[in-house]
Simulated assay, not measured.
Amino acid sequence: MGNMLHGEYKVPGGKLVVVDLEVEDGRIARFRLAGDFFLEPDEALEAIDRAVTGLPAESSAADIAGAVRATLPAGAVLLGFTPESVATTVRRAIGRAADWRDFEWELLHPVAVRPAMHLALDQVLLDEVGDGRRPPTLRIWEWDEPAVVIGSFQSLKNEVDADNAAKYGVDVVRRITGGGAMFMEAGSVVTYSLYAPGDLVLGMSFAESYAYLDDWVLQALRSLGIDATYQGLNDISSPLGKIGGAAQKRLAPLPGTRSGAVLHHVTMSYDMDGDKMVQVLRIGREKMSDKGTVSAAKRVDPLRKQTGLPRAAIIERMEETFVRLTGATRTDLTPEELAEAEELVRTKFSTREWLERVP
């Protein structure tokens, strides 16, 4: 008999999925599914157990989900989970994935720095977590000047109206993650970065990892009365409109390790100046047409409008929620980290070469 493997996966916005299994001769054995989900009819649970038992241990998540879906009785109802979430939990069990509480998290909320410094800190802290010099960390951003932060692969001239950016004194910088441009003024957005070991999202697709890494902030927003949900790949939304968006970058594991690291950061609108934003950003007609709207400002419903709370109060609830869920300890950036980031600002993030790498 092989060693029993255990996996858990909290479906973002859904229920907890739990699996126990063994691996014998390269195949899944004695598989059992459990959780606080809802499933009808009762016999569907045993059908899922039978479908997964005997599959090759190296089966992809797509193959496992397909086997589960194929075995479900006609008319079966799954509430709070899906065949894909079962497959994710199986892959996490076999890979011995970690959970939030398996790490000693730190929470950083330093004083305001300029936009390029934030981007340099992202690279520094991601590298440190990746090579084990820093524990997993949540960092809240503060800044006191307007900026546009474009995605790593975006065209500068296609995204930013340079004349209007100069007119309004908007600093334009490029980050190391993909995704779209962010218009940021002092006090107008809530931005944070997570630096996590790759083990935390082991077995998840990219889409699942986005929602999983932001589930804590959705819990915080819901506690403030916002019906927050995850939409598409990387949007945090509510029935009143989009609230914000996420982006990621992953580091490959170092030689002799298996984890790597992931940078996951989010910007949510607190109190946007939509008129100024659409003058500085070149929001394409195609992006507007697929949303059925004529203005980027109308696509976003800021946190101030939805809560009536000061920005600091929203951040305080976010921090309280994160500490409660992860046990994080509040700490500060080290002088060495700040010095390394300053050097990266000088050599990379404030250079024309980096900003115009995609002209």
Rank of each mutant, 00 (worst) to 15 (best):
S152Q: 13
S152T: 02
S152A: 15
Q154D: 10
S155A: 12
S155W: 10
L156Q: 03
K157V: 14
K157E: 14
E159K: 01
E159N: 04
V160A: 04
A162I: 15
A162H: 14
A162D: 15
N164I: 00
Y168A: 02
V170C: 03
V172I: 12
V173K: 11
R174N: 11
R174M: 12
R174I: 07
R175T: 12
R175V: 07
T177K: 04
T177C: 08
G178V: 02
G179Q: 06
G179N: 04
G180R: 02
E185N: 09
A186Q: 13
A186S: 13
V190D: 02
V190Q: 05
Y192R: 04
S193K: 09
L194N: 01
Y195V: 08
P197M: 07
G198S: 13
D199H: 09
D199A: 14
L200W: 02
L202S: 12
G203E: 06
M204I: 08
M204R: 04
S205M: 01
F206C: 08
F206V: 15
A207R: 15
E208S: 11
S209W: 09
Y210G: 00
A211F: 06
Y212G: 12
L213Q: 06
D214K: 10
D215R: 15
D215P: 06
W216V: 09
W216S: 10
V217Y: 08
L218D: 05
Q219T: 14
A220Y: 01
R222Y: 01
G225A: 11
D227W: 04
A228G: 07
Y230G: 01
Y230E: 02
Q231R: 13
L233E: 10
N234Y: 11
I236S: 04
P239R: 09
G241N: 09
K242S: 11
G244V: 07
A247C: 11
K249H: 11
K249Q: 08
K249R: 14
L251W: 06
L251N: 12
P255C: 09
T257D: 02
T257W: 04
R258V: 14
R258A: 14
A261F: 12
A261N: 06
H265F: 10
H265G: 09
V266H: 00
V266Y: 01
T267N: 05
M268K: 10
D271R: 10
M272G: 03
G274R: 08
G274P: 03
G274K: 02
M277E: 00
V278S: 07
Q279L: 09
V280C: 01
R282L: 12
I283M: 01
R285H: 13
R285E: 15
R285F: 10
K287T: 10
G292N: 05
G292V: 05
G292R: 04
G292M: 07
